[in-house]
Design a protein around this nucleic acid. Structure first.
Lengths: 152, 152
DNA sequence: ATCGATGCAAAAACTTTGCATCGGT
DNA sequence: ACCGATGCAAAGTTTTTGCATCGAT
């Protein structure tokens, strides 16, 4: 049986001399409800819709702790805004991003980890993590772009 | 013999009904002088040091055109700031980033392109580009972190 | 002469921070 | 009771935009 992430976060906080507050619990709940990649902003509005009042500042502060606790991971999809995903107990995934719609699809890529470790070894680095992002145009979009494509 | 990038940029601009100005020429020169990954800010200060006065706005506007012209590529190293590198006529590279020093090393990874194309095909996507970034700790840094390491 | 380009400063978008107050432990 | 956490608003960063003027074609 799996230990709930809530308990894991709680333990992490205690170890750091930090407190497990109602706000942090609510934020973690909202994070756990995310099915896909999410942003700070999105959490805020979902929480407000759910009738929970939390400040932006607390969201950002908590996201940082969740990263330290290895519960979420920051992705690098674009350089304007931070994107996160649940990562606890999961192998790092790659991401396929549609440059037209912004849609993000996870792609399993277990073979990347050995590659990363080999490259780090070659450079004398200690591996920490890695990101693999593919940009493409999703099916419906590329068809719309192509005047030669016949749809019947 | 290789056509100078300046001419390529000029042609690109003309094709788009845009103008080749002194500022754009200077910015391209400065970009071409970059040996590694660079940022908008860095270009600005290097140009000012070189006695060229350009506005931040023009730098950003020109960087956008240089990307459209495929002369530079925006990397995704962190979500705070845009990083660029010269990319004209080069295969996409991966990047090894030291999380302690911020140092960025290019890593050739020609095998990623076929992987990208296969994954795109599987999802019905048209491939556009990809990014592969490895985070690690560079040799001297990881030694400094490790109290057991003996250096003699 | 046209119409895009420039510089400046203001605005925007995202994230961080200072401070008084609140609340876990 | 202590000391970290919160909310708010202000400040910080990076990037974008409006506008009057400049300049390439």
């Amino acid at each position: 049986m799996i230990e709930p992430l809530c308990a894991i976060f709680r333990r992490f906080l205690k170890r750091q001399g930090l407190k497990f507050t109602g706000e942090r619990a609510k934020i973690l709940d909202t994070v756990l409800a995310q099915e896909e990649v999410f942003e700070a902003d999105q959490l805020l509005s979902e929480m407000r819709q759910g009738g929970h009042r939390v400040s932006k500042a607390t969201i950002y502060r908590t996201l940082k702790h969740l990263q330290d606790a290895k519960i979420i991971t920051e992705l690098l999809i674009d350089s304007k805004q931070a994107h996160y995903e649940l990562s606890f107990g999961r192998k790092p995934k790659g991401h396929l991003v549609c440059v037209e719609t912004g849609r993000i699809t996870e792609i399993p890529s277990p073979w990347l980890e050995p590659v990363r470790d080999r490259i780090c070894r070659e450079h004398g680095y200690d591996p920490v993590s890695h990101r693999f992002v593919i940009y493409g145009i999703s099916p419906s979009e590329s068809r719309a772009d192509d005047p030669a494509a016949q749809d019947d």
